[in-house]
Design a protein around this nucleic acid. Structure first.
Lengths: 205, 205
DNA sequence: GTCTATAGCCAGATAGAC
DNA sequence: GTCTATCTGGCTATAGAC
């Protein structure tokens, strides 16, 4: 017990494929590399997943399934707006620290295949911002927060949360921070980002 | 006059390569497609640029050269912080509207080749945030703006500016906006983003 | 289910005529 | 400088033994 080693080839392949596809993308990845990483034979990849494309789709689906519901749950919770923003940013940054390649993988793939978004929308757990939108509009109408378009606010939240992971090498260059210092900066963003957003919209008494 | 048609094969190739690489990436792009797009023979690509890799590097260098100095000039101007933020966001969003594929191209490439950033830093026009950093620190010390780490503020500015372009398909999905409405939302960000940032840091009287 | 060996294809690169 | 034709290597995918 304790060492629940999944001795399932199919799952082993998927894990290896995730590691390789996330770093190299669909075209950059090599089936041989995935096989090596999984410690199994290349032919088995096709035995279980038929083609590279299908294997990739399995990886993408799982990756997206990890990211999206996490946003959706918070968006539709009954938290007040301020707590919702704190929860979104803190939880999401913590999550992405553990899976740093996920966002750019998902975003890259959607860029080269934009029509796929339509398929995703129709599935469960695809983030729905209706509740969030109403919440923001009500607070604006009641003059509890500064006027802002809910879509813009939502995009700001997501941008501030995710972009520092996607553009890490570039931002490390701009700030001249080494890996360790940048990691600390990201860590700090767990609280910095929500503070920043709340400062931007709250009305001072 | 007026129709300065560059009848230069080398430049024609670079333009075509830019169009294809920006949309497909290094591995997704096909030399044949670039040749077709340029209206010339595939062998000529190799005649002028030796290899796909070298052609790609030429494209990347030009793309990065378009983006980076634009940030750097504003960062090192003698504008006050507030105007600097307005200038950065407005000008940059306007610029990227005209070149929507540039940011994700540059960022994707740097992700798959992070060590390349070191080379870029040593070149001219690579953004240097020293002036910006001092400016922020002084204003914080003088209690003219709320306390914030200059690196965090800089990253916030860049995130809010660039991310909506990189993640356009995803964000269109989240907000359920069609192309036209999303375009308008981006247009609005020319003023929305700087307002948001300035609200976040300014001290109310 | 797992392996070895290989088919088949496609894309980058080059040779050589003009 | 520009073209056609072709080579070469590498990669996905499969056939077939165990």
């Amino acid at each position: 017990m304790g060492n629940i080693e999944e001795n399932n080839t199919e799952a082993t392949i998927l894990e290896a494929a995730k590691r390789v596809f996330l770093r190299k993308g669909l075209f950059g990845a090599r089936m041989q590399e995935i096989a090596n990483d999984a410690g199994i034979n290349k032919a088995l990849l096709h035995y279980y997943y038929r083609s590279k494309q299908k294997l990739f789709e399995a990886v993408f689906k799982q990756a997206f399934g990890l990211m999206a519901p996490r946003i959706n749950n918070v968006l539709n919770s009954d938290l007040e707006l301020e707590d919702k923003i704190i929860s979104l940013t803190q939880n999401y940054i913590s999550f992405v620290i553990k899976h740093p390649y996920l966002p750019s993988f998902v975003i890259q793939e959607l860029n080269s295949n934009p029509d796929f978004v339509a398929t995703l929308i129709s599935e469960d757990h695809f983030p729905n911002i209706t509740v969030f939108r109403n919440q923001v509009n009500q607070l604006v109408a009641a003059e509890k927060i500064k006027p802002i378009d809910p879509n813009q606010l939502f995009i700001n939240v997501i941008s501030l949360t995710i972009f520092p992971f996607i553009a890490a090498p570039l931002l490390k260059g701009f700030t001249r921070l080494d890996d360790k210092a940048y990691k600390q900066l990201i860590e700090d963003r767990k609280v910095e980002v929500s503070n920043f957003i709340i400062n931007a919209i709250k009305i001072e008494k």
